[in-house]
Amino acid sequence: MIRFESVSKTYDGQRRAALDRVNVDIDKGEFVFLVGASGSGKSTFLRLILREQRATRGKVFVAGRDLGKLHSWKIPAMRRQIGTVFQDFRLLPNKTVTDNVAFALQVIGKPPATIKRVVPEVLELVGLDGKGGRLPEELSGGEQQRVAIARAFVNRPMILIADEPTGNLDPATSIGIMKLLDRINRADTTVLMATHDSTIVDQMRKRVIELDDGEVVRDQSRGVYGYQ
């Protein structure tokens, strides 16, 4: 599903590589934690998958496609197969929960009838049924992150990327979010989550890829957080 073949990335004007000859292969339906200190290359790793950045050397494959050879006008179609969740939720503050989720479908041209049917389904899936009419500011942090997950998942992507999704949440709420991501993963969606949350990684016992200074220093199935 996601394959990095000897991928290096050096940003313009920097001598040190953000990623250095990274080889990673993630299969369909896997749940993978991406761990490492700040500046270790986690964000670059995710940006390459979303094709927000291009690899300086090596090849990145997503769903069988070589992103280096992807025409820029095909990028939007590629991104529709990837859902993305961030630490800061990134909701539209003046739209209701339902409208925030519907927005993701509207802007890729889904018909209103489909939107009307699919949005309540996904809100129920993330545990927000009955809260569709609320504005983001009326929700707790955990609920806001659920809206973000609903928006990322509403188009049934093959891959869900989560960048520190529990970074702004307390431990109890984080567990709820992790259960939700686990549920989405069980529906055969590949989940790739970058995190600093050692408790979660240790509890979940999923595959762990550790980056240090742009290099993969550990790739362990059923791993633990493993560094301080």
């Binding site: 979303l50 006008w73 939007p76 179609a77 590629m78 529709r80 990134r90 927005f103 802007v107 890729i108």
Partner: peptide, 11 residues
């Protein structure tokens, strides 16, 4: 968000 969810440039 539009870019993230794959809205086309034209859109």
């Amino acid at each position: 968000i539009m870019r993230l969810v794959g809205a086309s440039n034209l859109y």
